[in-house]
Design a protein around this nucleic acid. Structure first.
Lengths: 263, 263
DNA sequence: AAGTGGTCTAGACCACCCC
DNA sequence: GGGTGGTCTAGACCACTTA
């Protein structure tokens, strides 16, 4: 048995989770705990099939998913390799605030300015596709890195989707994790990103001069039924933060699409 | 035969393209030419397998890919549906400038300020992972929508990867398409997005006041060998443009990842 | 030539939706 | 209960890498 060995032990047949999903978790675990280090080659697919006791098709579905997440890299004729730190820290979507903090070795913290349920205004109701006046949980946080204010984050969640959110302490808790644990499955998100100037409110909260550049990201996250679950507006101090994204085409094969936002 | 019928005629066995990729193209064609309209249900998988003469596994690989591109939406127990215009215009990556123009019904054009080969500076060489002094193609364009200047786009391509780029007319041509046609396969891209102020150069080119907010997107596009092929820096007038992204988790199944940049 | 990933197949069974 | 997608399998053959 090599140290890169991945055994069946992690796979439970009676679980509701699909086998490929369990395989994803098993491999991800091995990468997280360090038994699979960046640059290492995984055992050949046919061996992994045996040790995980799943078919090759199922295994490959799992491995491809991990490519999508930036954990693995396939190399035709050579093998599957664990992605280096560079790529691993660049997920196949927008990097979240806490991920950024981890990557840079800084401590992320939040100051909660508002955490309460209030009636949805016309504007808020439209963004969340609910009726005006519906109870909505409002969360306003100043996000900090090593104590320095970086961004103001205003989030909205319809109360009937996740009751009692106002009892949670979002000084440390992650909103995304809290919603997931409440049984919501966030499957897709549309977002817009623009540059504006700081108004006096945001300038004061971030400790920058008025009219300084602000990076604004607005996001609507939906569940499997395409129901808006979360509306989030983050205003970053322009000279203190940079959004990062990474896009990879898994089974590319000369994709006919225009690409990654490049013409 | 229903109007949604997709026949084998489009699939050529002798082609180098994988069958699933050809199936993707066949379905995409039907959507593009209007024989499959938004909201319509596709024939059942088992029927499509017969008409395309491919196995169900292969067909599903193609359909899943189209979900990734925002063309289709699966519905367990009901069928596959053509995505509405809303979703279709939001690819699973950053929306490109011309896509934005199309969505908004505006005419995209470019003014080429510079199109020549020059030696790479230290900074440029580092970004492209080449030696300083290596010949690099420089392309500087002012991107316009309906004649209004929206952004300044500075792109760099190492000359040895695509010779004679300075002969092309990028007033109309797409750089991405030109590179693809030159045989380069752009498979992944890392990018950063930030907000800054307009310096006098950019302010003049965009016709805005100095120190006004600017949205800057920097991007490094790589080929299959992870070799940087294109470095692109786009500076958008803050009050004239908004970047749009859409992220979907195809086979989600309670993803354990933090999400879409949301905490 | 041997090893390894990439594509493809035919068929089975389960889970969900709707009549 | 019948139709439809979702998961899974065992095995075949091809393409790329390495020696």
């Amino acid at each position: 048995m090599t140290s890169a060995d991945v055994t069946r032990s992690a796979i439970r047949v009676d679980s509701v989770e699909p086998l490929w999903s369990q395989a994803v978790a098993a491999v991800r675990m091995r990468v997280a705990d360090g038994s699979l280090r960046p640059g290492m080659r995984l055992p050949p697919e046919r061996e992994l099939c045996l040790s995980l006791a799943i078919s090759r098709v199922t295994l490959r579905k799992a491995l491809l998913r991990l490519v999508d997440e930036g954990v693995l890299k396939p190399s035709h004729g050579r093998g599957w390799y664990v992605a280096g730190d560079e790529a691993k820290e660049w997920p196949n979507s927008l990097e979240s605030f806490s991920e950024t903090a981890r990557r840079m070795g800084l401590v992320a913290s939040s100051v909660v300015l508002r955490s309460e349920v209030a009636m949805a205004t016309l504007d808020e109701a439209e963004r969340l596709a609910i009726a005006p006046g519906t109870p909505v949980f409002h969360l306003v946080r100043v996000r900090k890195l090593d104590g320095v204010p970086i961004a103001v984050d205003r989030s909205l969640v319809p109360s009937h989707l996740a009751p009692r959110l106002d009892r949670a302490d979002f000084t440390t808790a992650s909103l995304y994790e809290t919603l997931t644990r409440a049984g919501l499955d966030l499957v897709d998100a549309g977002s817009t990103i623009e540059a504006t100037e700081a108004d006096d409110d945001v300038a004061a909260q971030l400790g920058v001069a008025e009219r300084r550049p602000i990076l604004v990201m607005h996001q609507i996250v939906r569940d499997r039924a395409e129901r808006p679950v979360l509306s989030s507006t983050i205003q970053y101090a322009g000279d203190r933060y940079r959004l990062r994204t990474f896009f990879a085409r898994a089974g590319a094969s000369s994709g006919p699409m225009s690409g990654f936002g490049v013409d």
